[in-house]
Simulated assay, not measured.
Amino acid sequence: MKKSKFLIVPMIAFGMVSLAKAEPLVEESAIPGEFSANISLTSDYIFRGISQTGNNPAVQGGFDYTYDFGPAAVSAGIWASNVKFSDATIEIDYYAGVGGSIDNFSWDLSAIYYTYPGADSSLNYDFFEIAPSIGYDFGFMAVSAGLNYSPEYFGDSGDAYYTHGGIDIPLGKYFTLSGTVGYQAIDDNAAWGTDDYTDYGISLSTEIAGFGLSAGWTDTDLSKSQCDDACGVFSVALSRSF
């Protein structure tokens, strides 16, 4: 998104994660583990309640590698999307982590490096986060919670953390209703451009002929002067995994 009174940071709460179940790219390989890919088209790239494309569509996709070893698995991948900042038009993220599950309880510890090729290095757009999370599936619903921490956030705005939670409720056999809420805290609000804020959203998703389809609404508690048209956004996304 273009920078007005504040700088916008990338990546999704909605639309970045492929909704379709990933399948191996190849069935037989000399390399242990599984490779997969995903691609999606979304009407708006929204990250933590804020549009990253100026309310314009985004084409997104990535490649992932996963290796299971008993009760846990390691994974790594790369993901990219177009963005609309005054000094950057693409975002490329690199990530790796380990996670597992015990009965209905799941856990994950990941590291993510967000980059913006083509942006002036003096702007300090690139940043790193560590992201632990947990989840529990009750059957009739699944809940999750996590914390993303950065020692030096987007735009050289100091250390920052994002606490978040989510809930997924199956609606019959074909639909899932999801809700999210998060709180973004930043050390240097002046460098970032807004106060600390809360974001929240709701979405409905399904799978048709191997394609994931979702529609959702997200917003923040930022004032109109701070968020302009980048908050309070409805979006739809179509995705496919291979």
Rank of each mutant, 00 (worst) to 15 (best):
S122H: 12
S241N: 05
D228R: 09
M16K: 12
G15F: 00
A30T: 14
G179E: 13
P32V: 14
I134K: 09
S101V: 00
A237Y: 00
A20E: 06
D68V: 14
G139P: 00
V181F: 11
G118K: 05
V17A: 09
A230D: 02
L25A: 06
Y161D: 15
V59F: 11
S122L: 08
L7Y: 06
V9H: 09
T206P: 12
L238W: 08
S214M: 14
F35L: 14
A131F: 10
S203M: 10
D44S: 05
G155S: 12
S150A: 10
K224M: 08
A88H: 03
A72Y: 07
F127D: 01
A20G: 04
I112Y: 04
T42P: 04
L222T: 05
E152Q: 10
L204M: 13
W79Q: 08
M16D: 04
G201A: 09
G179F: 15
F105S: 01
F85R: 09
V98C: 02
I92M: 11
L109C: 01
A185E: 11
V143S: 03
E34Q: 08
E27F: 10
A237H: 00
G216C: 09
Y161R: 14
D64A: 12
D159G: 12
E91T: 07
A209W: 10
P24Q: 01
L123I: 00
A30V: 15
I169G: 01
S203R: 05
Y114E: 10
F6I: 10
Y136V: 15
T53Q: 07
F154D: 11
A20C: 05
I130V: 11
Y200K: 13
D93F: 06
L25H: 05
G172R: 00
Y67P: 05
Y45H: 11
V98R: 03
P132T: 09
V83R: 02
I8H: 00
I78F: 06
S178M: 15
P151T: 08
G49A: 01
N124H: 13
F154L: 15
G193A: 06
G61R: 03
I167W: 13
G54Q: 05
G97E: 01
D108C: 00
H164I: 15
I112A: 03
V236K: 13
D44H: 07
F234C: 01
N55G: 04
I90F: 01
S133T: 07
A111V: 14
L204I: 15
D44K: 08
S203E: 08
F63V: 15
F47E: 08
S144E: 12
A58W: 08
Q226S: 05
A30P: 08
N148F: 11
D44I: 00
I130W: 02
G155Q: 03
A215P: 03
T163G: 11
T66G: 06
F211Y: 12
F63P: 05
I130N: 02
P170F: 02
